[in-house]
């Protein structure tokens, strides 16, 4: 028998994007069959930044494509331009 459906994803924001959006973490309901993509979520959440301004995403802490279908239980992070080292 299949386990209970997580039915939501966890969304994380960092650095300047977090401050401009006004939140750091949010749980977002998702259909148990998944399918919504980070690109679609980006526009649904109405972020103040332009998506083409160097924003990258990570799904479950790995870089991923903006059009990767999300699954219940996923951790999705929107990452503003990186500046390490």
């Amino acid at each position: 028998m299949a386990g209970p459906c997580a039915s939501e994803i966890r969304i994380l924001l960092f650095a300047g994007l977090r401050e401009r959006a006004g939140w750091a973490e949010r749980h977002w309901p998702i259909d148990c069959t998944g399918g919504i993509t980070p690109r679609q979520l980006w526009f649904t959440l109405q972020f103040p930044d332009e998506l083409n301004q160097g924003i990258r995403i990570a799904i479950n802490q790995q870089f991923a494509d903006l059009d990767t279908p999300l699954q219940p239980g996923d951790e999705l992070a929107f990452l503003p331009p990186i500046s390490g080292g």
Binding site: F14, A15, G16, A58, L79, P80, I82, S83, G84, G85
Partner: peptide, 14 residues
Amino acid sequence: LLEALKHNAPFWKR
């Protein structure tokens, strides 16, 4: 490795 971590390890500077 230095260039890789500067561009591909998630750090942000303020």
